[in-house]
Simulated assay, not measured.
Amino acid sequence: MAELWKSLPSWVRNIVVPIIALVVAWKLMWFVIGVVAGLVGFLINVLLLVGIAAAVVILVKKAAKS
């Protein structure tokens, strides 16, 4: 691996490789942010669904009593 790195021209080692590393890091960061945002959105939807279901159950029980 060291031989391959040494065989690259200096402009590739100093310019191209860092740019590629930055692009990959940027894409990876936005992938992680997207996954986290998706999970948070899913959890919010689940909580809303559970809340609505609980409200319906409470209302049905109150209606059945009267």
Rank of each mutant, 00 (worst) to 15 (best):
A21G: 10
A21R: 15
A21E: 09
A21I: 13
L22T: 08
L22N: 02
L22S: 11
L22E: 04
L22Q: 14
L22I: 14
V23D: 05
V23F: 09
V23I: 15
V23H: 01
V23T: 03
V23A: 13
V24A: 05
V24S: 02
V24R: 04
V24D: 02
V24C: 03
A25F: 02
A25E: 03
A25K: 00
A25Q: 01
W26P: 01
W26C: 12
W26I: 14
W26G: 13
K27S: 11
K27G: 05
L28F: 09
L28T: 13
M29G: 08
M29W: 10
M29D: 09
M29K: 03
M29F: 15
W30Q: 12
W30A: 09
W30G: 13
W30T: 13
F31D: 06
F31V: 08
F31L: 15
F31R: 14
V32T: 04
V32S: 06
V32F: 02
V32E: 05
V32K: 00
I33M: 05
I33A: 07
I33Q: 09
I33N: 04
I33D: 01
G34F: 01
G34E: 02
V35N: 02
V35L: 14
V35H: 00
V36T: 01
V36H: 00
V36S: 00
V36L: 06
A37Y: 03
A37M: 13
A37D: 06
A37Q: 00
G38I: 01
G38F: 01
G38W: 07
L39P: 00
L39D: 03
L39C: 11
L39I: 14
L39T: 09
V40N: 05
V40S: 01
V40Y: 06
V40F: 11
V40E: 04
G41P: 07
G41H: 12
G41M: 11
G41C: 14
G41N: 13
G41S: 14
G41R: 05
G41D: 15
G41K: 15
G41E: 05
F42D: 07
F42P: 01
F42C: 12
F42W: 15
L43G: 10
L43I: 14
L43N: 02
L43D: 08
I44H: 00
I44S: 06
I44F: 10
I44V: 14
I44T: 03
I44Y: 02
N45P: 00
N45T: 09
N45A: 08
V46K: 00
V46C: 01
V46N: 02
V46I: 11
L47T: 04
L47A: 12
L47K: 07
L47P: 01
L48G: 15
L48F: 09
L49T: 10
L49Y: 09
L49H: 15
L49W: 14
L49V: 11
L49Q: 11
V50Q: 02
V50A: 06
V50K: 05
V50R: 11
V50F: 07
G51R: 07
G51S: 11
G51P: 04
G51C: 03
G51Q: 08
I52A: 07
I52Q: 06
I52T: 06
I52W: 09
A53K: 07
A53S: 11
A53V: 03
A53H: 07
A53G: 06
A53T: 13
A54R: 10
A54G: 08
A54I: 15
A54F: 13
A54S: 04
A54Y: 05
A55Y: 08
A55V: 15
A55R: 12
A55I: 15
A55H: 07
